[in-house]
Amino acid sequence: MSGRLRLVIFDVDGTLVDSQHDILAAMRAGFDVVGEEAPAREAILGIVGLSLDVAVARLAPGLSEAARRRIVEGYKDAYTALRAGQGVALSSPLYPQARETLDALRGVPELLLGVATGKSARGLAKLVEGHLLDGYFVTRQVADHHPSKPHPAMLHAALAETGVDPRDAVMVGDTSYDMDMARAAGIAGIGVTWGYHRAEALTGAARLVGDFDALATALTQDWGAWR
């Protein structure tokens, strides 16, 4: 690697942590609030990564705005209760080798780590605290402050905060929204295939990786090979 600073921006749900159990349960609880049957598992996981209001609008386009707001609040209440009852480590466990990879990347002087997520600031803070990841991410971009993915605002803010050039940044995520956001921001995207969207949906990715070892190699030894 060269001496220039490089920025690796991670998605969270489906990329670093496997939160699908609580996402599914909370969404079903939200729909139950308005007396509606929740969409199928595949449909719910298909909207992971979007801001919650946008996600619910996609899942329930035929419901009124007031009903969708009640689903959003029901989801938030259920998700908070699930997390409180189990603790973050069980509620949203890190994928195997995620911590080891973050530790290794954090040890590379030229690499800065960041996050761009559809989570709220509070939700991300709880996750970081629960997994003892405080100090790992120099920039944290969340749904509270930006339009939903795939709008590039989160990535633009991350680049501005760190002073890194787009050519020296990469977005790592498991959904088409992450890859579309990266493309819109003019940075490369690495698609991970262990998350919530099928590999074939990750169009536009500069590279696909199937495990954290391959991701670490792509971000360190092979940086110039896939860009």
Results as ranks from 00 to 15, higher is better:
8 V>C: 09
197 H>C: 08
67 A>H: 10
120 S>F: 10
217 T>M: 08
3 G>C: 07
48 V>I: 15
145 H>V: 02
149 K>H: 14
149 K>E: 10
169 A>I: 03
155 L>M: 13
19 S>F: 00
120 S>K: 12
37 E>F: 07
159 L>P: 00
102 L>S: 02
12 V>A: 06
181 M>I: 12
41 R>Q: 14
113 L>I: 09
85 G>Y: 11
124 L>D: 04
137 F>W: 06
125 A>D: 15
202 L>W: 07
3 G>V: 14
193 T>E: 07
185 A>K: 03
141 Q>F: 05
158 A>I: 09
149 K>W: 03
127 L>Y: 01
197 H>R: 15
29 A>W: 12
73 E>K: 13
49 G>R: 02
46 G>F: 00
186 G>E: 09
208 L>T: 09
116 A>F: 01
42 E>K: 04
19 S>H: 05
40 A>C: 09
36 E>H: 15
171 M>W: 01
175 T>R: 13
72 V>D: 06
185 A>D: 08
48 V>R: 05
123 G>P: 02
199 A>M: 09
28 R>P: 06
96 P>D: 10
206 A>V: 07
11 D>H: 10
152 P>A: 09
62 G>I: 06
22 D>L: 02
8 V>W: 00
2 S>I: 09
161 E>C: 03
190 I>M: 03
38 A>H: 05
92 S>F: 01
103 D>G: 06
104 A>I: 03
15 T>K: 05
215 L>V: 08
144 D>Q: 12
58 R>E: 15
81 A>N: 05
12 V>D: 00
168 D>M: 07
214 A>S: 15
179 M>Y: 00
185 A>H: 03
83 R>M: 07
93 P>E: 04
206 A>I: 07
226 W>C: 10
91 S>Y: 01
165 D>N: 13
59 L>S: 08
137 F>C: 08
128 V>E: 12
102 L>H: 01
7 L>W: 04
204 G>Q: 11
111 L>V: 13
3 G>P: 04
54 V>A: 13
65 E>G: 09
116 A>P: 02
20 Q>R: 15
132 L>I: 00
59 L>I: 09
81 A>K: 08
120 S>T: 15
70 R>N: 03
143 A>Y: 01
28 R>L: 10
4 R>L: 13
